[in-house]
Design a protein around this nucleic acid. Sequence first.
DNA 1: TCTCTCACG
DNA 2: ACGTACGTGAGAGAC
Length: 386
Amino acid sequence: MKIDEPFLRAYSKELETDLLKVRDEVHQLAGMDFNVDSPKQLGDVLYNHLKLPFEGKKTSTGQLSTNEDALQALIKHHPIAEKILDYRELAKLKSTYVDALPLMINSKTGRVHSTFRQAVAATGRLASDNPNLQNIPIRSERGQRVRKAFVPRNEEYVILSADYSQIELRLVAELSGDENLLEAFEKKLDIHTATASKVYDVAITSVTKDMRYKAKSVNFGIIYGQGAFGLAENIGVSRGEAKEIIENYFAQFPKIKQYMNDNINFARQNGYVQTIKGRRRYLKDINSKNFTVRGFAERNAINSPVQGSAADLIKLAMIDIHREFKKQNFKSRMTLQVHDELVFDAHKDEVEIIKPIIYEKMIHAIKTRVPLEAEIGMGANWLEAH
DNA sequence: TCTCTCACG
DNA sequence: ACGTACGTGAGAGAC
């Protein structure tokens, strides 16, 4: 990937100024100087020096956590919490991306060359390292400015990005065969609204924002094998309400429940689960007598076939796209894969030719009953291509 | 080298 | 009473 180095160097200076200012404000509010980058020192300042109430969870080693959840809980008690969150965002962006990426530009090619590792992730996903280009910021406004630094090779090219829509949930529909979920995708409904309509037993048009928000969380949680405790935590409702939501969900989508149980039972019998293309993940703890250990294995039994099948799908699409690009001798290149997204350094003259090729190869990589969908965008950088 | 935290899907 | 949503990689601090 070509990186706009001057752009990042300028951004770094800006972040440096902001960082010094925010660090100073944190010290002022604490009434003492300390290393804000040290979770240990920070915990000491917050919970011993300032005596703020600790509501977070302790870390695995018993240290008082200062992570985002813990700091969020402190906002109502002390203005220092927001400042620290601000500091953390700036520090992360600067050290991990804005300062690090320019150092990794290859002097011969003028680009960064990530490695895509094929035999690391237990589910069959790819992993990217040195640098990791699968975790470039996008969610926050300051983070989006990092994405802008990912640019085409020259003026004759644009960045083209193609991503699958709701790929994991579509694969849950495919693998479970659940009629209600399949129907929602066949009708091209907004999937979270459709889920809310079923769970709350109201018309699609009567689904409120709150209902959709909660249904969205359930849809994500399902893929991970989440329980009532996790859902309650996530959407801020009682465990009773969360339990009810989940029960309604499974009543409406009975084959999803069945599919999840089938996977757990298959794992207990065979010691592994598998994806749509037969990739296995062995789960040695599936019959453990330890509740916690077994619970982890059971959630893996639910999640791995879904996450891994999505990985199978996009890999096959990548092979098909690469073959076609070779065959037609395109100048355009496939440069990144981010789990459900493919990024291209696309020649402007080829854009309209390769768009339908990419789309067709992506949605037809595997024959499925559920319709697959992909969205394609382009622009002068990776942010604009979304 | 481990721990904690946090960036992404 | 326990712990509680999956998969990664990387930077800074602590040891």
